[in-house]
């Protein structure tokens, strides 16, 4: 039986041009690889924009960070973007120390991330003359 520190549940909300992933629990063990597998499946479906909401994540350690870094790299290879929302406290400090802000976008809320995504998509469409 898994200890509470390694328990993780993952909810996926599909929206028009992106998905919101809401993990609950601890992103601090190899069980966190499940989030990687969820993202792999979404990328295969053609999803390019992934928003991960950390509101219900207690702790992210270096194992969790390595999993998130792998996701960022794979999304970049597809020409997409990763948004992190509701990062707070220690988790936000770690992300900043590691300069993850240069490769993923941090927003306080999902709505603010969506607004950025909408604006970004609009800019892309204009650039393509659509």
């Amino acid at each position: 039986m898994a200890s509470p520190e390694t328990q993780l549940t993952i909810a996926v909300q599909r929206e028009a041009d992106h998905v919101v992933i809401v993990p609950t629990g601890y992103l601090n063990a190899l069980t966190g690889e499940r989030i990687d597998k969820v993202c792999d499946a979404l990328l295969k479906e053609g999803i390019k924009y992934i928003l991960i909401n950390f509101k219900q994540v207690e702790l992210i350690n270096t194992i969790g960070i390595s999993i998130l870094v792998g996701i960022i790299e794979k999304v970049h290879l597809q020409g997409g973007l990763v948004y992190f929302t509701h990062l707070g406290g220690t988790n936000l400090e770690i992300f900043e120390v590691l300069d993850l802000g240069s490769v993923a976008l941090f927003f306080p809320t999902d709505d603010q991330a969506r607004e950025h995504l909408r604006h970004d998509r609009e800019t892309q469409r204009r650039a393509l003359g659509q």
């Binding site: 063990a29 350690n61 270096t62 960070i65 390595s66 999993i67 870094v69 790299e73 300069d99 993850l100």
Partner: peptide, 19 residues
């Protein structure tokens, strides 16, 4: 394998390396 995988992930996470 398992302890080594965890160790590898810890090193990768520490330096924000993907692979």
């Amino acid at each position: 394998n398992k302890p080594l995988r965890e160790s590898l992930y810890r090193v990768l996470g520490t330096f924000a390396v993907g692979a």
